[in-house]
């Protein structure tokens, strides 16, 4: 039967409340000024409902369903990344093995074999990719192809698989369980995106990295990071084993690294001269457009927690 620890249940309800508020606000805006186009905003929030609903369902069913679900997200992200990055026809066989690395990596997650989980992609897949490429024998563009393919699995499989590993770690805060850690990480990361956007939009003046992302401002970054740091400190004792002070550091870590995840993927898209990485999620773009910050926050939050408690 479905068993969600009490604090995680509270967190889930709080997220749903926020979504209800967001939907209401959009509705009021549309009624008040019908002449303006809120289609994009409406789509965005509708998609949020779907994403949150599927995520919460998968998390509540069992740890295994949640791990399989994150494995599937890795698959979608890897597929999207391989499709937008230039590649050669001869790389197809290597890509097949990259897809195969997803169930293997998530198997280490499911059985909790930390030692292999942490080196499988950075060491074994890293060495295997050029081995397979050599056997195919296309040397023109070799470095570039090997580099982008290993980068693809590092970002979309290795980094993201840190999220479900939080479920496999032994429970310390029994009121929240592993689900609490996952919700904490996911919520703070997405909340950070929203906060940086809102702060930047309302008081943003000084451009931060105009060449990569012209909308990013110092005000947005500082405002967003401080809001998230504060919230993370307050929520940490509820959902994680972290104390309030440790939560403060976790929040700063998530805020700053989330920003970098966002702009690193922006640079990739800028290099390829595309705006979104796909059209999978209405109002959001591709799946990488949604997971970009998590690629950075997930491993950093995981290892911070791992260093302190495991």
């Amino acid at each position: 039967m479905i068993k969600v620890p009490p604090h995680s249940l509270i967190a889930m309800s709080a997220v749903l409340c926020l979504l209800v508020i967001a939907s209401l606000v959009t509705w009021v805006k549309r009624v008040r000024s019908p002449e303006r186009d809120y289609q994009e905003l409406k789509l965005r929030i509708q998609s949020w409902w779907w994403m949150v609903a599927v995520l919460f369902l998968m998390l509540s069913l069992s740890d295994l369903t949640a791990i399989v679900f994150f494995g599937f997200l890795s698959f979608l992200a890897l597929k999207e990344f391989l499709s937008i990055v230039p590649s050669r026809q001869t790389d197809r066989n290597v890509m097949f093995w990259l897809y195969l690395s997803i169930p293997i990596q998530y198997y280490w997650v499911a059985v909790g074999w930390y030692g292999v989980f942490i080196i499988f992609i950075p060491v074994y897949v890293f060495l295997f990719i050029p081995m397979r490429m050599v056997l195919i024998g296309d040397t023109q563009g070799f470095i570039r192809a090997a580099g982008s393919m290993h980068w693809a699995v590092m970002l979309t499989v290795f980094s993201l698989s840190h999220i479900p590993y939080l479920l496999t770690l032994p429970t310390i805060n029994s009121n929240a369980g592993g689900i609490g850690l996952v919700i904490y990480l996911l919520f703070m990361t997405q909340f950070n995106d929203v906060c940086q956007f809102v702060w930047g939009k309302s008081i943003g003046k000084h451009k931060l990295i105009p060449k990569v992302s012209p909308n990013k401002t110092w005000e947005g970054l500082i405002g967003g990071v401080s809001t998230v740091t504060l919230c993370s400190a307050l929520v940490a004792p509820l959902l994680t084993p972290l104390s309030m002070l440790q939560g403060l550091v976790a929040g700063g870590l998530i805020g700053i690294s989330g920003f970098f995840g966002d702009v690193v993927l922006s640079s990739v898209k800028r290099d390829l001269q595309i705006k979104d990485s796909g059209h999978l999620i209405p109002g959001h773009g591709g799946i990488l457009d949604r997971l970009d910050s998590l690629i950075y926050t997930a491993p950093l939050f995981f290892h911070y927690l791992y260093y302190l408690y495991y």
Binding site: S83, I84, V85, P86, R88, G141, L272
Partner: peptide
């Protein structure tokens, strides 16, 4: 198109 099919095109 979003997909890039070759290095040359990029």
């Amino acid at each position: 198109c979003l997909t890039k099919s070759s290095f040359e095109e990029h």
